[in-house]
Write a protein that binds this DNA or RNA. Structure first.
Lengths: 216, 216
DNA sequence: GCAGGATTTGACCGATCGGTCAAGTAGGGT
DNA sequence: ACCCTACTTGACCGATCGGTCAAATCCTGC
């Protein structure tokens, strides 16, 4: 029976260290997940073969299928943490009272999400339509729609929707594809974070104004 | 020998009508190009098989390979018109004197380009990294870099680069993927155009200000 | 009607696809 | 020593991959 996924059980190192320092080396499953994610994001799910993933990670194809029931299951395990995180962010946002401060914190949360799960977002964003029917994809799709509806309310203008779409798709592209051939990783990291914050706020702020802080 | 590509020669209908009215039905090559483009954009080049393209277009796989030398050649013919158009737009922009009016016309040209070649742009934008080495892809990559450099000048800030990336990737995403599951094609078409114009100008205007119209 | 190029197609090729299976190795508890 | 579990792997399966080729079929000028 494959090692069950849910929490990657540490087994050793009683003094819990979360990051993969040489003390707690990443498990085989983690290596495979990371390798698969990189391939899914750049070549696409349909275009990535289990053999490629296995070769890139230094295992055999059979080992990949030992750790994950199928290629789709592997995709599910790869994307789930990102979707969980996005769900938390959205939940926190709808729970808080409408207001500028709440909006601002949401944007901050969202940018943290973008930076941490850029590959997962890029994978989902650009392939959701062709992967419809896979549970994890459908779940993510519903989340995105909920997010859009929450940010734009019901009577949102076309411009508001387009602002949200450009922020979402633009960030996903810039942080993954654009990063590696527009600016050759010339990125002081926190400089990127700050620039991203300015632009995303600029894109999503008008939406906030329309819906809750319109005429003060 | 396959029918040569360059200009789709009409053969009939001396009174030239460019659009595919029932009078001049689209040629087999055009049908295949359109079908392939749709598949490349949604499933990805690597994930699309010649069989799928043939089936979707109502031909056999052999027919596809009769009209196009290979899968890569098909990709090339599909993307080339868009790249040609982009090249013209960029050329016109660098030829004109730096100024706000020139910038504004460039944004208009660019939005026309986005709307007309949305599938081509989406295909290239999200798969350029994994398709490096294919001539048409490398050519498009160079164009994008030139475009970025022209818009941002040399000493452009990280924020400027990110603005350009978000505008480019965001528009490509919104017009293709976002369109079909965020807003169920509720799009009065010119309403989309206008909203797009506002948001793209907003994203690229600061770049213009920095480089040429900074301190008036 | 007929010749001849343009087009379409099915049969076929070696390679690779996702996935199954059984044989094997490694190591810890007893 | 023993066994049991976790893990890894190569051989193998039917299906499909991109691509070749030679027979059909279609269409047009004569």
């Amino acid at each position: 029976m494959p090692p069950e996924s849910s929490p990657t059980h540490p087994v050793v190192a009683p003094h819990a260290e979360s990051r993969q320092h040489p003390v707690t080396r990443p498990s085989t499953g983690d290596e495979l997940r990371a390798t698969a994610l990189a391939q899914f994001a750049s070549i696409g799910f349909a275009g990535t073969s289990l053999q490629q993933i296995a070769d890139a990670a230094g295992y055999s194809k059979s080992s990949v299928l030992y750790h994950f029931a199928s290629k789709e299951a592997l995709l599910g395990e790869v994307l789930t943490p990102a979707i969980d995180r996005l769900e938390v962010i959205l939940g926190r946002f709808v729970a808080a009272p409408d207001g500028t401060a709440s909006r601002r914190r949401f944007v901050d949360d969202f940018i943290d999400f973008l930076l941490e799960f850029r590959l997962e977002l890029h994978t989902f964003i650009n392939q959701a339509q062709s992967l419809r029917g896979i549970p994890v994809i459908d779940r993510a799709g519903l989340l995105i729609v909920r997010l859009s509806d929450t940010l734009c309310h019901e009577g949102a203008s076309t411009e508001d929707r387009i602002r949200f779409g450009i922020a979402l798709g633009g960030a996903a592209y810039t942080l993954v594809a654009g990063m590696t051939f527009l600016n050759k990783d010339i990125a002081p990291a926190d400089e990127i974070r700050q620039a991203l914050s300015v632009v995303i706020t600029e894109l999503l702020a008008p939406v906030a104004v329309h819906t809750s802080e319109s005429r003060k």
